[in-house]
Computed example of a mutant assay.
Amino acid sequence: MAHIDYYFGTPSPWAYLAGNRLEEIAARHGATITYKPVDLLQLFDRTGGIRPANRHPSRMEYRAQELRRWSGHLGQPLNLRPAFWPVNPAPSSYAIIAAQEAGGGDLAGLVQSFLRGVWAEEADIADDAVIRDKLSAAGFDPELANKGLFIGAETFARNLEQAVEDGVFGAPFYIVRETGERFWGQDRLDFLDRHLASL
């Protein structure tokens, strides 16, 4: 059985546009997933990337066009100027980490709800009440927002170090643990699907 390490940032529009395709691919091939939220800005700093605020206007204009095109292509609503972006990724990431540790709910749904919150719902995913609501809606104890702070902070920092070691430099980023094959971007999910089918 294959295993996928999924690196992403909760404010990432590209991770949002991935929707539930990763989970559908994993289910089709009997693969499992570990969700590894990371601080993308720190990841960019560590791996030669450029933070969005420092990118040349032409790059940001093209990014906006691509987001609009992919949003239409995938039929996923996306606000190019969300009310709460940039947003601190730590609180939502801690909640995801704590939920993954606790088990018993819809982890994929929780991850997608935070991404959707930023890009389609105008929600502040760093807000405690929003985090609690999303935990509860995904079948988790909303108290994980508090209970999971220590393990969340510890694992969040470790995820960044592991991402750098694993050759991750952006998001979404998928690594098949058994083969070391890496796939960067929601537009590479078809290649991930094909790779898993070959195992």
Rank of each mutant, 00 (worst) to 15 (best):
residue 159 N to P: 14
residue 127 D to Y: 00
residue 139 G to E: 11
residue 124 D to M: 10
residue 106 D to M: 15
residue 127 D to L: 01
residue 132 R to Y: 13
residue 127 D to K: 00
residue 92 S to C: 03
residue 91 P to N: 12
residue 118 V to F: 12
residue 123 A to I: 01
residue 134 K to R: 14
residue 120 A to G: 12
residue 118 V to R: 07
residue 115 L to V: 14
residue 97 I to A: 00
residue 85 W to K: 10
residue 99 A to Q: 10
residue 126 A to F: 09
residue 130 V to T: 07
residue 111 V to K: 09
residue 119 W to K: 00
residue 87 V to G: 07
residue 144 L to F: 13
residue 156 F to K: 00
residue 108 A to P: 07
residue 91 P to T: 05
residue 132 R to A: 10
residue 108 A to K: 11
residue 125 I to L: 06
residue 137 A to F: 06
residue 136 S to G: 03
residue 132 R to T: 02
residue 90 A to F: 03
residue 122 E to R: 04
residue 159 N to C: 01
residue 113 S to P: 14
residue 104 G to P: 12
residue 147 K to P: 15
residue 125 I to Y: 06
residue 105 G to Y: 13
residue 109 G to E: 03
residue 135 L to N: 11
residue 93 S to M: 00
residue 136 S to K: 11
residue 158 R to Y: 06
residue 85 W to R: 08
residue 107 L to H: 15
residue 121 E to A: 14
residue 85 W to I: 10
residue 154 E to A: 15
residue 146 N to Y: 02
residue 86 P to Q: 14
residue 110 L to G: 12
residue 107 L to G: 12
residue 96 I to S: 11
residue 145 A to G: 08
residue 153 A to H: 07
residue 91 P to L: 02
residue 129 A to W: 06
residue 154 E to W: 01
residue 145 A to F: 02
residue 122 E to Q: 03
residue 114 F to M: 09
residue 108 A to T: 01
residue 156 F to G: 08
residue 135 L to I: 05
residue 115 L to I: 12
residue 156 F to N: 08
residue 114 F to R: 02
residue 106 D to A: 12
residue 111 V to E: 08
residue 152 G to C: 10
residue 134 K to V: 09
residue 94 Y to T: 10
residue 102 A to C: 06
residue 115 L to F: 14
residue 150 F to P: 14
residue 92 S to E: 08
residue 88 N to H: 07
residue 136 S to R: 12
residue 108 A to L: 01
residue 118 V to S: 08
residue 113 S to C: 04
residue 96 I to A: 09
residue 141 D to F: 08
residue 139 G to H: 15
residue 116 R to C: 05
residue 98 A to G: 07
residue 93 S to V: 07
residue 156 F to Y: 11
residue 144 L to K: 06
residue 148 G to C: 04
residue 91 P to Y: 09
residue 117 G to L: 00
residue 98 A to M: 12
residue 123 A to G: 04
residue 85 W to A: 12
residue 107 L to R: 04
residue 114 F to K: 00
residue 93 S to P: 02
residue 106 D to N: 15
residue 140 F to T: 02
residue 148 G to W: 00
residue 148 G to H: 00
residue 137 A to C: 12
residue 131 I to F: 13
residue 96 I to P: 08
residue 150 F to C: 09
residue 99 A to P: 05
residue 105 G to A: 04
residue 127 D to N: 02
residue 150 F to H: 02
residue 86 P to V: 15
residue 119 W to E: 05
residue 114 F to G: 05
residue 133 D to Y: 01
residue 112 Q to G: 08
residue 159 N to V: 05
residue 129 A to M: 08
residue 97 I to P: 04
residue 104 G to V: 02
residue 116 R to Y: 10
residue 130 V to E: 10
residue 118 V to L: 04
residue 157 A to D: 06
residue 138 A to K: 13
residue 120 A to K: 11
residue 116 R to I: 07
residue 110 L to S: 03
residue 137 A to M: 01
residue 109 G to Y: 13
residue 105 G to S: 01
residue 121 E to N: 15
residue 88 N to W: 05
residue 150 F to G: 13
residue 124 D to H: 05
residue 100 Q to R: 03
residue 134 K to I: 11
residue 110 L to A: 05
residue 122 E to N: 13
residue 126 A to I: 02
residue 157 A to Y: 02
residue 94 Y to M: 05
residue 94 Y to L: 03
